[in-house]
Design a protein around this nucleic acid. Structure first.
Lengths: 141, 141
DNA sequence: CTCTTTCGTTATCAAATGATAAGTAAAGGA
DNA sequence: TCCTTTACTTATCATTTGATAACGAAAGAG
């Protein structure tokens, strides 16, 4: 019953949400809804992905997932490749245009991130890296 | 241009979003929309708060903020108190019922958090606490 | 070859959220 | 006093997102 630790956890996750939302606020590029952007982000880091996986991880129903993915395909931002081993499944990847868009988005985020930690020493960055590793391994796995 | 650090940052924030969303998935209690829940969460940690502050921090327009807050008031989950020093302003707080609801929500989250870190030693928890403090101070401030 | 299950689609409807225009009331300055 | 700005409200409309029913096509089991 680590009450203090839990409170820090809550405050921390709140701060992470706040900062990432600030940092990527006006990013959601050309003609993308917030949901669509999030889906692209997910595809970008988990490529290749199946529709069911997106549906599970993002807590959305298959029909809605299918609809949004269709829109993304129509915008030429992602590709669907039917799995030859099981033709019901589709491997979804970013298209070259999708990669380009996400790279640009990540670059904007990278710039703001750099501003944020700009005045830290090399030693402090190492510390931060260790902290990130630790938390990701023990808490956010 | 700390590329590796930035990549860890992205992976980390993604993981935090993923885990917090998993952890608080089926929480959004009785007759609350996701937005309304987030607003309550914000009020809970920043009490008392003005409408403009909510509007700013949550990146929503004043009219929409006003509308959602009206709904929350009608549900008796928060109170508005006109600032006697400037009667245009309203200090918004959780009502007793709102406090109760958020406490319950936080307890559910606390339980899942405890499950998550249940098998760690006291020493490891101290480490985690230090890591949270460090990151919050240097990165997510 | 049926039967069932898995993976995905299409269509449709309802609810939540975003955007904008117009208005009120208090505060503050000239 | 009059004018401007700030804080918030009300009303309205468009878009996004969520939920559900019904369907198709491939895979796997018996």
């Amino acid at each position: 019953m680590d009450k203090e630790l839990f409170q820090k956890f809550v405050a921390f996750t709140t701060a992470v949400h706040q900062i990432t939302s600030d940092i990527s606020k006006d990013i959601k590029a050309e003609a993308l809804t917030p949901l669509q952007y999030k889906i692209l982000e997910y595809i970008a880091v988990s490529q290749p992905v199946t529709l069911s996986e997106i549906s599970d991880c993002m807590h959305m129903s298959m029909p809605n997932t299918s609809r949004e993915l269709k829109k993304l395909s129509e915008k030429q931002l992602c590709d669907k490749i039917t799995d030859p081993a099981d033709r019901r499944k589709q491997g979804i990847t970013l298209s070259p245009a999708g990669e380009a868009m996400m790279n640009e988005a990540f670059q904007h985020i990278a710039i703001r991130f750099t501003e944020r930690i700009g005045d830290l020493t090399e030693e402090q960055r190492k510390e931060i890296e260790r902290a990130l590793d630790l938390l990701q391994e023990k808490v956010f796995y």
